[in-house]
């Protein structure tokens, strides 16, 4: 019973402290469809156009938004916006807030510190009047997740267009090719591969594979020998 209570308590605490959209437990991942570009680069697979994510969030009497997700429709959504409860505020009297993430092609001015990978997504929130992000900290502000076209490392970082420049935001990797950042403002967001970082090839890691197999064989032999000896002594 004590471990049951401890486990449940730990689970509740972990969910309270978890980043907005931690991968749900585990299970072999589902392969994503090829990345959909607004303007595909040379050599990219032919795909349908990328989709716009839209969601209508209800608001309470004071105009504060309910929680909700706004996901694009690709298999393996290319963008996910999570709005915690109370993160947005619409004018008093508004009944709802419409959030959207629209894919657009990268256009000048481009980031000076790297290259945009994938699409730029224009994140917007509309209502009967201006909508504000009122959450004071990361746990109460909207969160963006974007899928990069590949899982090559080092991965890209989130950047937000501010006037004629782009500003980096702290980015965490939440999946093989999925990245997440707190988004306290609306506007244009993109994943940027920062320059001067070499990238991994992405194929089978032969050295790690050989080492793993060697350790596996040795450990397996040790276990088998010890079991045989134990049975003989029994």
């Amino acid at each position: 019973m004590q471990w049951t209570l401890a486990g449940v308590a730990a689970l509740m605490l972990a969910w309270l402290l978890a980043p907005a959209a931690v991968p749900i437990y585990d299970g072999p991942g589902f392969a994503d469809e090829p990345y959909r570009y607004v303007h595909p680069p040379a050599g990219a697979k032919a795909t349908p156009p990328p989709t716009t994510a839209k969601r209508t969030l209800t608001v309470n009497a004071q105009g504060f938004s309910a929680a909700g997700y706004s996901n694009s429709a690709e298999q393996g959504p290319q963008i996910v916006l999570y709005v915690p409860s109370g993160a947005l505020q619409a004018p008093v009297g508004a009944k709802s807030i419409d959030v959207s993430e629209t894919p657009v092609a990268p256009s000048a001015p481009l980031p000076s510190d790297g290259t945009i990978v994938g699409n730029v997504y224009r994140v917007a929130a509309t209502s009967t009047g201006p909508v504000q992000v009122v959450g004071k900290d990361a746990a109460h502000q909207p969160t963006l997740q974007m899928r990069a076209p590949s899982a090559q490392q080092p991965g890209p970082v989130f950047e937000h267009r501010v006037g004629n420049r782009w500003q980096q935001y702290p980015t965490i990797r939440v999946g093989q090719d999925i990245y997440q950042a707190t988004a306290p403002v609306f506007g244009d967001w993109a994943l940027v591969k920062v320059s001067s970082k070499s990238s991994s090839s992405g194929g089978v890691n032969a050295g790690l594979l050989a080492g793993g197999i060697a350790v596996l064989v040795i450990a397996g032999l040790i276990i088998a020998i010890r079991l045989v000896r134990s049975r003989r002594q029994a």
């Binding site: 072999p28 991942g29 999946g175 991994s200 050295g207 793993g212 060697a214 596996l216 040795i218």
Partner: peptide, 22 residues
């Protein structure tokens, strides 16, 4: 040790596909 090696083998085989590699 065998468990750690099994994880290493999975990561090595999967490459960039990671958890998405059946």
């Amino acid at each position: 040790a065998a468990f750690a090696a099994a994880v290493a083998v999975r990561v090595a085989l999967a490459g960039v596909a990671g958890a998405s590699s059946p």
